[in-house]
Structure formats: C-alpha cells, structure tokens
Design a protein around this nucleic acid. Structure first.
Length: 471
RNA sequence: GGUCCCAUCGUCUAGAGGCCUAGGACAUAGCCCUCUCAAGGCUAAGACACGGGUUCGAAUCCCGUUGGGACUACCA
C-alpha cells in the first residue's frame, strides 16, 4: 500500500468507553501503527441531547489509559457544523438532495401503516420532486438514493456484500433544526479527513451502502471497509449492562491492568496462530485484517481475569505498589499515599502478586501486612489455635524476640528446630502461626511473610493470641 | 415483517480440500510440587449445528434448513 493509511476511531460521548468500542479503537490503532499510518480520534457528538463533555473526557482518559494514542484530534463534530452545511448545500445545488417537510407524526403514521401491512418501512419519497423548498415550515434535507440497481460493499472482513438499492430509503442528512445526522457526517468527515480505511463494528454494515452513495455524490475516493464482528454477552445477545461490567472504566476500578484488557480484546476476533499472550509490539507487528474472524464473540470475563493475573505476576512490584495505593486508600487501609513506605510495600507485593488476580484483591491481602491489628475468624481460631498450638506460638515468639538476623532464612531455621524438637510436620506449626498473624489460613510462605511483616507486628500479634488463649 | 451478517469443545480460537484420530488457551476435574493459598508442571473430559450436493477425498467449496446477531429514526 503506497497510499498513506489513515484510520479513525469515532466514539459518541453518550456513555462510557465500553468493551466493544475499546476493541474497535484498538484494532484501528493496531492497523495504523502496523502500517505506520495515522490514527485520528473524532468525537461524534451530533446528538446534542445525549452527548456530554463529561463522557467525552472520560473516553479520552480511558483511551490514554489503554495506551491507544492518536495522531490527530480529538475533533468534535459539533465544531464542524459549517463544513456539514456546506457539503449539504452542494448536494442540494447538484440536485442530489432535497428539502422534505413531512412531519414526524406523518412519518410515524406511515411507518405504522407499513408495519401493519407487512411492507418495508421505507420513506415514500413524497417530497422528492418538490420544486422549491417550503419557506414557512422548517424542512429537513433528504439524500436522493438510487431507486434501482445494486450496491456492492467489498468488505475486508466480510467479503462481497450485495445490497439492492430498492431497499435503501432517502435518508435525512440534515434535521429540520439544521443539525446534520450521523450517516451524513461520518461520510463528510471521512472524506474531509482523508480516511483510507474504515474499521468499525458490523452493526454498521447495513449503513454502508447508503454511505457509499454519499461518497459517490461527492465523487470522492472510496475508502476500504472492514466490519468487525460484534462482542456478545454470555447469553449471546448484544453486550450490555445486563451482562455486568462493560465499560473500560469499570474494569480499571476493579483493579485490571490496561495491558491485560488490551491483550484480551486483541484476541477477541483476531488471532495469530495459537499465541495468547502478546506484547504491544508483537500485536502491532502481527496485526492483519486477514486474521480477523467473521463471527461474533462472547465476552468471557474469566479469561480476562486470567490474563490480568498473568500480567500482575509479571509486573514490577514497584509499579504495582504505585497502582495499588488508590485501592488501599479507598478501602481505608491507609489514609494517604504519604503513609506508606513504597519500598517496603513492593516487598510485600512481591510475595502477594502471584496470588492476586486484580489490584483490588492485592489491596485486600495487603491489609494484614499494614493494619495495626487484625481480626481472626472465631471458627478458624477454634480449629487452629488449640492449646498445644499456643505452646508452639509461645516458643516461636521467644525465639523471634532473641533473633539477631530477622530474615526469612533465619526464621526458617527457627521453624525447623521447633518442628524437630516436637517431631512435628511443619504445617502443624506454620498453620497456627499463619492464623495468628494473618487472621486467615491462606497467605504467602510463612518465613517471608514474617520477615516482611516485621518483628514488631509479628510479636504483637502472637502475643495477643497467646494472651487471649491463656486467660 | 424486510434486508444483511454469522455458525469448530461451555467460552476465545487454530484450521486456506488430503498434514485432523480436529490443535492451543480460559474455565472444570484429577495428580505432582508443597508450611497454607497461589503460581508452575502433567493428565483427563469436552466441538466441526443439521440435511443435501461437488470431489478419489470436505471442518474446509456450493445449496437448503435450523439457530444466533445486526440494521430497518429528523440515535450514533
């Protein structure tokens, strides 16, 4: 391809950036980066009732968080109304569009009639041959679609798709209030921004023939189309709030890493042989539209969770320490980021990261590292803190108190000596200690755990248990 | 209703007519490792929607059926 590759992602700011949108953005980004092309971000906010600046900013923030950087934009369609007006006028002057003064009520009535009669609900073209525009009533502008023939969409993903022009109605391109509509502005913008490849969800496939005619009306170079299959919920219906978290932001808040989401999304509809784990560079290198599947994919949160734990395990503990702080604050485990020694926190995370699937889980298990005092579930206490276990706890406490080198290696020696002297399995001592120190039965290795929690807290927690059980 | 798209394990997918006794991954189960929980390793179970063609040969090509999805706005 010698022509400059230019693609765009065009979200409408009527909600959060959702999983499907993020994947569309990712595929466009991947395509642009692979071919060293240009990635444009365009905000489609022509629906003024539903679009908000808050959503727009959130979408931009999420794109950045995912690492999907763009080269041009963000452009806002509401800033470009003059351009659309100009394009619409050109169509009117060329006789390729016309004013329509049918009322919404009239249109709705005809639509109901058509449904009742089992006919296609198509605009009947009443105003198509109107000689001059009505001056007193507000009129919309409709595009004149061809009535006969066929339109072929040569889609890079779906292949050749043929539409009968008789199915296509004269669509409204400018509303009676003067604002332009979606199917018109996308085309105008894509022409104006010189977009070479349109990669979007296949819910737009049926719009494509209409858009092709608009391109033709402007004698514009036709872009290539690539329609991505949809992402579905577990019940195979369109992914929506009913299926749980669907926004990128929600996953961020649940403690997912951006690279996990990106990797997961990349494998939803695209593949490179059997490979599951990709660095961003690999994705960019390997990405190709040819390897995009045609069928819809069910969103599988379990696999995303697996990828997240994969990336957490392999992340630097220092990085995780920074990322987990908001979660710690949120849970009230720390007051502010000044309350915590990052180096120490990284050491604790080093022990915990292969056990946490999300940053949220990581923060939860960090609680017994940080808290002044911990709670022990009475049931667990009853099972593990038996009188004979208390005896070991006392001995351990004394040994720990007189330990010069408070390291996991030395601590391990204490445990081994203790186990040997009572001819016990390690677990018989380790489990009661674990319960006393963490309040639960699952934790990282006990020696490392004690080392990082430190002498003071360890002794304190052991003492508390011992006191309680003796009295 | 009309138009369009889609169809391999529960899920994501590999598969470009013989390399397929259909491969990998998530999830599930078992085993190993082990101070617990994880992580890791090994193993198991699990799919070509159905029916017709084409072909010496079909998961792969064609047609139909069924099932799912999208669109059908003065929403995007």
């Amino acid at each position: 391809m010698n022509q400059q590759i230019r693609v765009r992602f065009a979200p409408s700011p009527t909600g959060f950036l959702h999983i499907g949108g993020a994947r569309t953005a990712l595929f466009n980004w991947l395509f642009a980066r692979h071919y060293k092309g240009v990635f444009v971000l365009r905000i489609e906010d022509t629906d003024r009732n539903r679009s908000t600046d808050e959503y727009m900013n959130l979408i931009i923030q999420d794109m950045k968080w995912l690492g999907l950087d763009w080269d041009e934009g963000p452009f806002r369609q509401t800033d470009r109304f003059d351009i659309y007006r100009d394009y619409a006028n050109r169509l009117i002057q060329a006789g390729k569009a016309y004013y329509c003064c049918c009322t919404t009520e009239e249109l709705e009535r005809k639509r109901q009639l058509a449904i009742a009669a089992g006919l296609p609900m198509k605009y009947d073209g009443k105003c198509r041959d109107l000689k001059k525009p009505p001056s007193n009533i507000p009129a919309a502008i409709r595009f004149k679609m061809p009535k006969e023939g066929q339109t072929i969409v040569n889609d890079l993903v779906k292949g050749c798709v043929i539409f009968d022009n008789s199915q296509i109605e004269d669509l409204v391109i400018v509303r009676s209030d003067g604002t332009p509509t979606y199917n018109f502005v996308v085309v105008v913008d894509d022409i104006d921004m010189n977009i070479s490849h349109i990669i979007r969800g296949d819910d737009h496939l049926n719009n494509t023939p209409k858009q092709i005619h608009i391109y033709e009306a402007f004698s514009s170079k036709m872009p290539q189309f690539a329609h991505l299959p949809m992402i579905l919920g577990h019940d195979k219906s369109r992914l929506s709030k009913r299926h749980g978290a669907t926004s990128v932001l929600a996953y961020k808040d649940m403690g997912y890493l951006p690279e996990a989401i990106v990797n997961y999304l990349a494998r939803l509809g695209w593949s490179h042989g059997d490979q599951e784990i990709f660095t961003k560079d690999e994705m960019v290198n390997f990405f190709s539209i040819e390897n995009i599947g045609k069928s819809a994919a069910v969103f599988n949160p379990e696999k995303l969770l697996w990828l997240n734990s994969h990336y957490i395990i392999r992340s630097d503990s220092e990085r995780l320490a920074e990322l987990v702080i908001p979660f710690l604050i949120n849970k009230g485990i720390i007051e502010s980021d000044k309350d915590i020694d990052l180096k120490w926190l990284s050491k604790a995370i080093n022990l915990l990261k292969e056990r946490a699937k999300t940053l949220d889980e990581l923060a939860n298990s960090l609680n017994y590292f940080i808290a002044d005092s911990i709670e022990i579930d009475p049931k667990i206490a009853q099972k593990f803190l038996m009188p004979q276990s208390i005896k070991y706890l006392i001995e351990l406490k004394n040994a720990l108190l007189s330990l010069d080198d408070f390291s996991s290696a030395s601590i391990e020696k204490i445990f081994n000596t203790l186990a040997e002297s009572y001819s016990l399995k390690l677990g018989a001592i380790a489990q009661p200690v674990r319960v006393a120190i963490t309040g639960g039965t699952a934790s990282p290795g006990i020696y490392e755990l004690i080392e990082i929690i430190g002498r003071e807290k360890t002794i304190d927690r052991l003492s508390k248990v011992i006191e309680q059980k003796i009295t």
